[in-house]
């Protein structure tokens, strides 16, 4: 009796998981209404949260889904921001065009920096990116590039006024732009992860040697992932430069790398939407921590970070998933 004894693969692996349409729809509706309920400053902060979320998502793709570390993503954030600023300041490009250009420049930079990553495993990559993150502010300040980057002074970025047919303030307009870009970026990430490429990325994370023997071109995928990750961070950097209307080397220090890293860990390394929470966390907690004790905000960050590793290794996203499973069992 020949029966089909092979168990079928988990359908999610072959077909790809479905987007939870109801939840996403609810999220979009809430996100679209918010700017009318919030004041100007809260709008601005919401925009920054979404920008951070995009950068953290980039880091997430790299670390959570491909198992590579970066302590130097502030460098790519800076490259994105400076690309936008230079194009607007020196060449008068329209700001909207500079966002994808910033992303593409970062993709190339990330891919090229990722090439050595073929050779660098785990901690060595963390070390190389650490060096990158520490070195970049100094490069931006360098007198050789001063004509381009504005040196220590930085560059101003001017946004065009809101088009007259839109009944929005400047903050609201950019909130919606950031919201739209974020949705697109999240959609791309979702599709990427639920594709053949995404499975290859995760195979490399879980067992590089097995992945290689299955025919996955590990080095190519690793550099590509680094490039894509830098692309995300570069888009975020370009938008940050435009929204803040200013870039300066000291906004892109190693502390920014730490901040993005914290956001990734707290949100959950293995989750796409955890990045939103990560962005929320790194924007709001410093203010909150300053109220508790001035000057100690990073210490509080550090403590939270270590606690998260102990009690919530998969971040807030993991916690929510756990709760969902528990509640479903109860019902």
């Amino acid at each position: 009796m020949a029966t089909d004894v092979e168990t079928r693969a988990d359908p999610r692996l072959t077909v790809g998981a479905k987007i939870p349409i109801k939840l996403v729809g609810l999220f979009i509706i809430i996100g679209a209404i918010l700017p009318f309920l919030l004041g100007g400053y809260a709008n601005f902060q919401g925009t920054l949260i979404m920008i951070y979320a995009i950068a953290i998502l980039g880091l997430n793709l790299l670390t959570g889904f491909n198992g590579q570390f970066s302590l130097g993503h502030s460098a790519f954030y800076a490259v994105g921001a400076y690309t936008a600023a230079i194009l607007v300041y020196h060449l008068d490009w329209p700001v909207y065009v500079t966002i994808p250009v910033g992303g593409v420049v970062c993709f190339i930079a990330g891919f090229l920096f990722g090439l050595p990553a073929l050779r660098l495993e785990g901690l060595y990559l963390a070390l190389a990116t650490f060096a990158l993150g520490v070195a970049v502010p100094q490069i931006l300040k360098s007198s050789h590039l001063e004509g381009l980057t504005g040196g220590v002074q930085g560059l101003d970025v001017f946004r065009p006024p809101v088009p007259e047919f839109l009944p929005l303030t400047m903050d609201q307009l950019w909130y919606y732009i950031a919201f739209g870009v974020m949705l697109i970026m999240f959609w791309i990430a979702w599709n990427l992860i639920n594709s053949r490429t995404g499975r290859a990325m995760m195979a490399i994370r879980d067992n590089p040697i097995a992945a290689k023997s299955m025919g996955v071109n590990a080095s190519l995928y690793k550099s590509l992932t680094f490039g894509v990750s830098a692309f995300y961070t570069g888009i975020a950097g370009a938008m940050a430069a435009i929204v803040i209307e200013f870039v300066a080397p000291d906004s892109f220090t190693f502390q920014l790398s730490i901040l993005l890293f914290i956001g990734m860990v707290v949100g959950g390394t293995n989750s796409i939407w955890g990045a939103i929470f990560g962005g929320f966390f790194i924007l709001t907690v410093p203010n909150f921590a300053e109220e508790i004790s001035t000057g100690l905000s990073y210490a509080i960050f550090g403590v939270i970070l270590i606690l998260v590793i102990y009690v919530l290794p998969s971040g807030v996203a993991g916690l929510v998933n756990l709760l969902r499973v528990r509640i479903r069992k109860l019902l």
């Binding site: 901690l123 990073y298 960050f301 550090g302 970070l305 998260v308 590793i309």
Partner: peptide, 9 residues
């Protein structure tokens, strides 16, 4: 790595 970064902070 996360804990190292936490300690730095």
């Amino acid at each position: 790595v996360v804990v190292f970064i936490g300690l730095v902070a």
